[in-house]
Design a protein around this nucleic acid. Sequence first.
DNA 1: TTGCGTGCAAAGGTTTTGCATGGCA
DNA 2: TGCCATGCAAAACCTTTGCACGCAA
Lengths: 139, 139
Amino acid sequence: METSYATKQGGLILALLKAEPGRHFTADDIMKMLSDGGNAVGKATVYRHLDKLIKQGRVRKYIVDEGSSACFEYIGEEHSCHEHYHLKCSVCGKLLHVRCEYLDEVAEHILGHHGFVISPEKTVLYGICENCREASDEK
Amino acid sequence: METSYATKQGGLILALLKAEPGRHFTADDIMKMLSDGGNAVGKATVYRHLDKLIKQGRVRKYIVDEGSSACFEYIGEEHSCHEHYHLKCSVCGKLLHVRCEYLDEVAEHILGHHGFVISPEKTVLYGICENCREASDEK
DNA sequence: TTGCGTGCAAAGGTTTTGCATGGCA
DNA sequence: TGCCATGCAAAACCTTTGCACGCAA
């Protein structure tokens, strides 16, 4: 399975993502952070490693808005059971992570009643976050 | 409110979408179909009309995969889509409309526990539909 | 006549690919 | 040494924008 070499760049990228599981990075973030750390890595290399990590199931890719960059997040090697969903605020753009058993029940319901398997890693629930709601209420 | 002109192109685009509510079109689909029908319309015009229709709430935009085109769907003028959620199959691209009280409870839960107001009309749950799941199971 | 709508082409942004070079095993 | 990985630049892709002309009201 593992036919690839262990390279410096691959190690750097994985280490960066792994250092903050759950944090979202864009491809550009990764390049900038590595560059700032004195280890510039080409963007093609970054994308190629991200693709590999996604195929291995260690990283997830999220599409928040078309036209802007995709987000990548380290999700670990083993605990795939800790799925979580994303809430995206349409107003401020903030992305919230929600770990919630309730949502797992929902997925089961959808499967049972509608024959549809939800992919939490691709799903983003849109709405308005608390801060923005309060801000608009004050108007 | 209605400060815009009624043009031939705008009518064609709306008619095309309206003819099949719930079907999803890419911008390219729309251009090709109009072109095949003998009414070629520029892509800039297509995008500009889609933007308008989205702002009016008559059309919804979906992002299925980054890198590929966005999908657009006619959702009607009056019967607001506040009542149902959308499930989009990542494999076959089919869009399912699900009306389900269970999902309303979810929205309440998210609001109560996470302070986040879900916008059903913007939210799409991604996953794999029954047909595609069975098809892949057979492999 | 007024000024929005149209369409072409060019620009804008992200991601992918080609190819020569560099580095791991 | 063999072969994958790298990185630069160019290509590919979807979408937006600029501008002159056309058309609805």
